[in-house]
């Protein structure tokens, strides 16, 4: 078995084992951390599709993360206050419904943002996605109905048919399963005809056009799928914290997702998983040392960018061999 295949299987296994052992040792906080890692990994898998496969440096993916979060917050808010949204739509506490709304809302936002920003490239693309993200951030801050700057709290975690979601391990397993599904989808997509065309459009757009492909359209489709996945992660994240605030929409969040991917390995299937696990681990051990633990994160990131371009996955599995 190739080293990378082994990593692709063992990293999620490690995450799962951590949660199970924590459950056995009765350490709910560790389970929560593992859940956070799974959700951040999920959000980063979404971004990895645009950033890694498509080469689209989006500094606005917090927008989709936050939209997913607010989709959960708004629906649950109307359910717990028994006030229909716009006097028409009942709120809901059902996770599958919330996920669906989060995915669709994030996909639609990605369609609009992508359609406009993908007309540019390079620095301009980065700036436009950043601008869209910040627009949504300030919009959320100035919207008092849903808490404005203070954010919006949900009393109880939402429901999943047949599962007690209040148990930390159960909620972890829900998030972990979704991560696993999305990882499989990412893998299939990277090897699919669409994946080949998208990666060609990143490496050599002129060639892509010369064989009859339209890079803009390929990138837009990738951007929409990417936004939808990150939106799903946003809904899970808000549900984990039972809280959604404009912070989910801030550009720090976008930056954090990029950092996760670069740490783990750009365009690699398990890059986001490795990155998120490392990030949460560092946070856990370094936060005790200093409130400013990000200094150490910065140093590690610098090391990876300078000496290990393929991130953690690249360090262990070596240079990527082509998909076969």
């Amino acid at each position: 078995m190739r080293a990378e295949t082994l990593l692709n299987l063992s990293l999620p296994a490690l995450l799962l084992a951590t949660a199970l052992i924590a459950h056995w040792l009765d350490e709910p906080y560790i389970i929560t951390l593992a859940t956070r890692a799974a959700i951040l990994a999920l959000a980063a898998v979404g971004l990895n599709l645009a950033l890694g496969l498509g080469g689209l440096v989006s500094l606005g993916h917090a927008a989709f993360f936050g939209i997913g979060g607010y989709a959960m917050g708004i629906l649950a808010f109307h359910a717990q206050t028994f006030t229909p949204l716009w006097g028409l739509i009942e709120g809901t506490k059902s996770m599958p419904v919330i996920w669906l709304v989060a995915v669709v809302a994030a996909a639609l936002a990605a369609l609009v943002i992508g359609a406009l920003s993908l007309r540019t490239s390079g620095v301009y693309f980065i700036m436009i996605t950043l601008a869209f993200g910040q627009m949504l951030f300030y919009f959320a801050i100035s919207w008092p109905t849903y808490g404005g700057e203070d954010g919006l709290s949900i009393y109880l975690r939402n429901d999943f048919p047949g599962v007690n979601t209040l148990l930390p391990l159960n909620y972890f397993l829900i998030c972990f399963s979704l991560l696993a599904v999305v990882l499989v989808l990412f893998d299939r997509l990277a090897k699919s005809p669409f994946g080949l065309a998208l990666q060609a459009a990143r490496q050599t757009p002129a060639r892509a056009e010369a064989v009859g492909l339209t890079p803009y359209r390929l990138r837009l489709v990738a951007f929409v799928i990417s936004g939808a996945i990150t939106g799903l992660a946003g809904a899970l994240f808000a549900d984990l914290n039972r809280f959604v605030s404009p912070n989910m929409l801030s550009w720090h969040m976008s930056g954090e997702l990029i950092i996760l991917i670069v740490l783990g390995g750009l365009a690699r299937l398990s890059g986001p998983v490795a990155g998120a696990m490392l990030f949460i681990t560092l946070e856990y051990f370094l936060e005790g040392l200093s409130t400013y633990w990000h200094v150490y994160l910065g140093a590690i990131l610098l090391g990876v960018v300078l000496f290990a371009r393929g991130g953690l996955i690249g360090l262990v599995a070596g240079r990527e061999v082509a998909h076969d």
């Binding site: 005809p193 080949l196 060609a200 060639r207 892509a208 009859g212």
Partner: peptide, 30 residues
């Protein structure tokens, strides 16, 4: 203007894929 990270075969498959169409398929190993 070749895709430098692709294998030689992938570069040519890209051509046959472009000519045949059906690019927007998200499953199935190309």
């Amino acid at each position: 203007a070749l895709a430098m990270e692709f294998t030689v075969l992938q570069n040519v498959v890209l051509g046959t894929l472009g000519a045949r169409g059906g690019v927007y398929r998200f499953f199935g190993n190309v």
